[in-house]
């Protein structure tokens, strides 16, 4: 699992590359939180899932945790380009209600 990020027009984009499960969630969480600490003035955070090939409910828990932290800073959270596999679990989780797909 690899996490890349870029700041564009004041929005912070995270690209999750690989498989997000219990094994990889801890490191992914740490990387995202580190970057968030550096870019606390971003307007929105966008998670790009185009290269995320797998996610289970551990990923849901991790995303929900990030959402709470990011929202507390007054930023919006959005999801971009999920694969069919990831889309299904995102739908079931109800996460799109709080972090819309763009």
């Amino acid at each position: 699992m690899k996490v890349n990020y870029t700041l564009s027009n004041g929005n912070l984009y995270f690209y999750l590359i690989g498989e997000l499960d219990e094994c990889t969630a801890q490191n992914t969480r740490a990387v995202i939180d580190d970057v968030m600490a550096k870019y606390s003035k971003a307007k929105n955070v966008v998670f790009n899932f185009s290269s995320l090939s797998f996610m289970d409910s551990t990923g849901i828990g991790m995303l929900l945790g990030r959402y709470k932290k990011i929202k507390a800073k007054g930023m919006g959270v959005f999801i971009e380009s999920p694969s069919t596999t990831v889309e299904k679990i995102m739908q079931i989780s109800g996460l799109y209600k709080i972090m819309p797909k763009i």
Binding site: S57, G61, L64, I89, S93
Partner: peptide, 11 residues
């Protein structure tokens, strides 16, 4: 601890 979703069985 550890941000668990509680969604495992639902999934």
């Amino acid at each position: 601890e550890g941000e668990r979703s509680g969604m495992g069985f639902t999934v």
